[in-house]
Design a protein around this nucleic acid. Structure first.
Lengths: 142, 142
DNA sequence: CTCCTAACTTGTATTTTGCAAGTAACTATG
DNA sequence: CATAGTTACTTGCAAAATACAAGTTAGGAG
């Protein structure tokens, strides 16, 4: 009987930290939300190079935390990971993070058109990501 | 000769993770930005209970990352930690985090008046926190 | 049936975190 | 001005998280 450790506090910042206060969760949210990734192999192939055991552990925790769902694909070997509403609602935080990083990272990899869109149509950008994530979740797996 | 490890990628999400993708940094930003804390003992006394060695390490890293500055207090024993502009610019992300947590945490400790203000005057709330942080930085230490 | 692939698990080394004690610099007090 | 108390740390060690390499299992393709 493994039981989850008690939360350190009821502070909302702590709630967030207990969801994504680690070296990988935000990067996986990025993959799901911005890059349209859905499969184990896709997450493995991102440039930061997550190890397979860590990826498996993170996906398990994110599911337990209600950020993602597991769907069986038509190809019975594959499992599709999609964001829940709770996960999709991180879009605003994620785009704010991109804005902050673009401002303070001299070597930022934020594409110029994305930065421009952040300035021109911030709300539209967020809505686009959210609509896409909802659409992908509803779509049938490959 | 300790040299800092190379960044894993130039992705803006990764830039953010390398700044606050751990169990403590966001909580310290919260202390500095929302709770007006400035001193070592104040950070030690927060309810999550950070250990002294971790606190020292985090403060050192946050300074190296340009999120905070160290100021000597009149009392020569004390050191005042204040947010830089880069740190203060996290206010928007922090308030978005509060909003997300208040929405999804059934036991959230977000005070009702704060939630109300998030709805009624989101921009004003952020500006208030930022102005206060700037004012504290400019003020002379105790 | 055989080979291949996708999603994991297992084993072990390394790094980070957590807990309990210090310690050095400075201040307050008698 | 000696002593006690504070403040911001450091040090030593146990525990947990992370990283790297190598399996293993359930399908699917030919």
């Amino acid at each position: 009987m493994t039981m989850k450790p008690p939360r350190r506090s009821d502070c909302p910042t702590n709630f967030a930290v207990e969801h994504f206060g680690d070296r990988w969760t935000l990067l996986l949210i990025r993959d799901l939300l911005f890059h349209g990734k859905s499969y184990y192999q896709e997450f493995l192939s991102d440039e930061e190079g997550i190890s397979t055991n860590i990826l498996a552990a993170r996906l398990k925790k994110m599911e337990a935390d209600g950020l993602i769902l597991r769907q069986k694909a038509r190809d019975g070997r594959r499992i599709r990971y999609v964001l829940t509403d709770k996960g999709i609602d991180l879009a605003r935080i994620m785009v704010e993070i991109n804005r902050w990083s673009a401002k303070y990272d001299p070597d930022t990899g934020v594409p110029a058109d994305h930065s421009q869109k952040i300035k021109d149509d911030f709300e539209g950008l967020i809505t686009d990501y959210q609509r896409n994530a909802v659409a992908r979740r509803a779509a049938s797996a490959d």
